[in-house]
Design a protein around this nucleic acid. Structure first.
Length: 496
RNA sequence: GCACGGAUGUCAGAGUGGCUAUGAGCGGGAUUGCAGAUCCUGAGACCGGAGUUCGAAUCUCCGUCCGUGCUCCA
């Protein structure tokens, strides 16, 4: 098996290679912390979480760096509007919010979270070097990168040619960056303006441009080239192309990034998610009514490069599918009767023995799962294999086996689910949560006596085959918010 | 306008030239007093047109439609 990834620069799936055997250096553009994270952020960091998890499951030692952009126009504007310019307070609060949202979605932490304000010295060093090499120039309102000094680097990620982005767009130049020689140039350093945080520099007080921070942080952390650079599809231009200019001209090393990975966008009800359309969902808002693991399931239930449309049907599907998975996992957990499973027969899809055949089918699903993930992290296909495994596992767990085999099958299924759906997809709740005694819910305790009494009456009605009376009691319970399900072991009830 | 992606059944959504997944929904069946869950099972699709090929959802070309970027964006 060999991992292949879609590289935006080469525009095709390519074999995944690393600079150092067994180790992966990965940098993903982080959030600008001026507001709470929205669904688009969730999707992005979920996509790279799966990539992170699969690389580790494949045996790589991953060094994952994700930055916080903690100074920029929007942060300053928001802080001036809402908290009298206390931008540091805003930034710290939003970073806490970021961790809260991402932890809820079961996204594993990156290894390092540099903040760009901690790297201003590094940015200044790079800018000085770019000026010396003739790739940048200082003007009255800042320092700009001179794109014409390396026109061959233009359009590496978006295919636009240097000339095609024509000077005709120059009408826009006036308002921003008056010191630019060419509208394609971009700011490395912005001269100080009133009411803004500033840092001293050889070009006077000011603050860094947006693109330079990622170059400074990634070069500093990885000491040069690295294996994966990721981010949202929208960052390809200009942000990531600017990084190519800066990093490659500064280091004389090309390509500096070996694999460019970009995730697709989130739409809502078929429209682009945006504040002006009023269809802008923050993670915090949606988690008030959707289980975080269901949201996670929904968002990885499409290939990471495809656009995804967030709507009720998508969440409904995810809830159903995720529910089936959880039910099967819970059944496997409960099926373990001893910690010493006996050996199971060899898996063999061609076997006449249902046990051996079922194990063979599960093994085949696991192989398909690995092939799918190796094919540019195809989580949709991988989920299909997991759901195939749910069917096989349920069949085996329901099969008429002797106790020793049943216990061994349960252990086998638990391990299967935890390895694929747990460790890699990250959609399994912890067994403690799943198997917690429902009686511990205080709301439940409150009504338990009444419910039990009614269930007793219903049981009497049922044994007398008085179905209308039995159903009337169930309706009454339902009106109380109690759902009754009859099982082989008697009725089970849950609170809505 | 330029650039980059798309178009698969009612819906969501994978797809390595030959047999197409996985689900939701719908139809049958088993089980159940009923419901739910589970299992078995059925119907139903490859935007249009040409071409390459023994064979195309998959490759090539043309067309149509859609999305995104070109300005801050995950």
């Amino acid at each position: 098996m060999a991992l292949r990834v879609h590289d935006t620069r080469r525009r095709e799936k390519v074999p995944f290679t690393t600079m150092r055997p067994g180790r992966v250096s990965m940098y993903v553009c982080g959030v600008t912390v001026y507001d709470r994270c929205h669904l688009g952020h969730a999707r992005c960091y979920l996509a790279f979480d799966l990539i992170h998890r699969w690389l580790e499951a494949s045996g790589y030692d991953v060094d994952y760096v994700q930055n916080f952009t903690d100074v920029d126009d929007k942060i300053i504007a928001r802080a001036n509007e809402t908290r009298e310019g206390d931008w540091l307070g805003l930034v710290d609060e939003m970073i806490d919010g970021y961790y809260e949202d991402m932890d809820a979605l079961n996204i594993l932490r990156a290894d390092h979270y540099p903040r760009c304000t901690e790297h201003v010295d590094g940015m200044i060093t790079i800018i000085e070097d770019l000026i010396e090499r003739g790739h940048a120039y200082a003007s009255e309102d800042g320092v700009y990168f001179d794109v014409s000094s390396a026109p061959e680097k233009y359009g590496q990620l978006t295919g636009q040619s240097f000339d095609a982005v024509r000077a005709g767009a120059g009408g826009r130049v006036g308002g921003t960056g008056g010191g630019k020689r060419d509208h394609r140039d971009f700011a490395l350093w912005k001269a100080a303006k009133p009411d803004e945080p500033t840092w001293p520099s050889p070009w006077g007080d000011g603050r860094p441009g947006w693109h330079i921070e990622c170059t400074a942080m990634s070069l500093d952390h990885f000491d040069g080239a690295f294996d994966i650079h990721g981010g949202g599809h929208d960052l390809r231009f200009p942000h990531h192309e600017a990084e190519i200019f800066q990093g490659e001209c500064h280091t004389d090393h090309a390509p500096l990034v070996h694999h460019w990975l970009h995730n697709g966008f989130v739409n809502v009800d078929g429209e682009k998610m945006s504040k002006s359309l009023g269809n802008f969902w923050t993670i915090r808002e949606i988690l008030e009514r959707v289980d975080p693991l269901v949201l996670r399931f929904a968002l990885i239930n499409a290939h990471y490069r495809s656009p995804i449309d967030m709507n009720e049907a998508l969440l409904h599907d995810a809830e159903r599918n995720h529910g089936r998975l959880i039910e099967a996992y819970a059944k496997a957990l409960r099926g373990r009767t001893s910690d010493h499973p006996v050996a199971l027969p060899q898996p063999d899809v061609a076997s006449q023995d249902p046990l051996s055949k079922g194990l063979g089918l599960m093994e085949r699903m696991a192989q398909g799962f690995a092939l799918a993930m190796d094919d540019d992290f195809n989580s949709r296909e991988a989920i299909a294999k997991v759901l195939g495994g749910v069917r096989e596992a349920t069949r085996l767990l329901d099969a008429d086996l002797d106790e020793a085999d049943a216990n061994a099958v349960a252990h086998h299924c638990v391990a299967w689910f935890e390895e694929l759906a747990g460790d890699v997809l990250g959609v399994l709740p912890s067994p403690d949560v799943l198997l917690a005694e429902p009686e511990e819910d205080p709301r439940r305790t409150e009504v338990a006596d009444e419910v039990e009494a009614l269930l007793l009456q219903r049981a009497e009605a049922r044994s007398a085959k008085d179905w209308p009376a039995a159903d009337a009691i169930r309706d009454r319970l339902s009106a109380m918010g109690v759902e009754v399900t009859d099982t082989a072991d008697g009725p089970v009830w849950t609170l809505r």
